[in-house]
Design a protein around this nucleic acid. Structure first.
Lengths: 193, 193
DNA sequence: CGCGACGTTGATTTGCCTCAACGATTGTGG
DNA sequence: CCACAATCGTTGAGGCAAATCAACGTCGCG
């Protein structure tokens, strides 16, 4: 009966039984349907969400109505609009389930409560965000220095578990290209090898 | 005689006299010449560097030898290759002074020492990296959803202190375009008014 | 069954790059 | 302090990667 959340966070730094209890008490389980949104642009992001099962995307919508995926989150990953969460200002982003999913959510006030009562969570969440920062920084660099085809191949390589289950339209949006162009890239790859 | 570093970090959460001493003892001042590099690709990033005066860039070099600016850091900002710093593996990035600069550097072991002896630094550095994360996430979104001209105007707007003092070649590299194209953008803007 | 999401293909257009050349400015060694 | 090199910004001609627009077939699902 180890709780998925304590299992995950405890893998960074072991947690005592009390700490686990504090944590579990403030994490609410939630079932999310495919295509259901857990954050809508205009709302304040009230939760950090930990994905137990399923898959989500964080995306923005531009002036012309096109959607741009910023991040995916599948099992054992976290998702939130960190900016809105901390400033408590309306988000410009959306979070949507790409599959039927199961998550744990921690409210902003509860996370802040936990930070003060379980100080090592500061360290753990610092590490978590450092990892995300490294990831997104690599992405910026890659976007500047390689072609869409190279980025696609790198994506397949880096996220095999995601590329298996995501529709190509979602991958194209993450890569910053149109679905049509991704289709042409895939064709070229196949022709060559 | 307030130390720039304690002034900066103390602005997030007040620090006691002891905490300030611990901190200051482990921060080494360093003067850096224009164009001098404080991190070379291939080396491990050993320090977090706090900029007291001057300006730096973090950049990568692609297969064809082109440089791509990932981040600038001027007064009261931090710079490091966070990935290399934490993994202690060789960096693929470089950090170079764009001006004659003055910085404080904290070594990796010293920062880890400080994290355990001044626990609130975990919280402060978590906030610092959250702010950087929000910044870079906005950049990813913007790169996908707007033209080079819009990104340039947004840069002027968002970083007036940087755009004043940086050569256009450096700005172009940050925006992910060639200096030639930035020049044409600037001409267009001027023609229009 | 029928509709909407998804993937594909082709013709055309466009944003930005490449390459080359040229002044202006800065800086640096003799 | 000058001469020369290096850096920087600009301009133009031509080219390419990726977008746009339009059409069509397939599949899963209510």
């Amino acid at each position: 009966m180890t709780h998925p959340l304590t299992l995950h966070l405890g893998s960074f730094i072991p947690l005592s039984a009390e700490e686990k209890t504090l944590l579990v008490d403030r994490a609410k389980v939630r079932q999310v349907k495919r295509r259901e949104k857990i954050l809508l642009a205009g709302e304040v992001c009230q939760h950090y969400s930990f994905v137990v099962e399923g898959c989500f995307r964080l995306f923005g919508v531009d002036d012309r109505g096109f959607e741009h995926n910023i991040q995916f989150a599948a099992e054992n990953d976290w998702i939130a609009d960190i900016g809105s969460f901390h400033t408590q200002k309306p988000s410009q982003l959306n979070i949507e389930a790409l599959e039927k999913s199961s998550i744990f959510q921690i409210k902003q006030q509860d996370l802040y409560y936990l930070y003060t009562h379980v100080p090592k969570l500061n360290l753990i969440f610092k590490v978590l965000i450092e990892l995300k920062y490294i990831e997104i920084q690599n992405r910026v660099l890659q976007n500047f220095s390689s072609t869409a085809e190279d980025r696609y191949l790198a994506f397949l390589d880096q996220y095999p578990n995601l590329s298996n289950r995501l529709p190509n339209t979602q991958i194209a949006s993450y890569l910053g290209i149109t679905p049509e162009f991704l289709s042409k890239i895939r064709k070229n790859i196949q022709l060559r090898g």
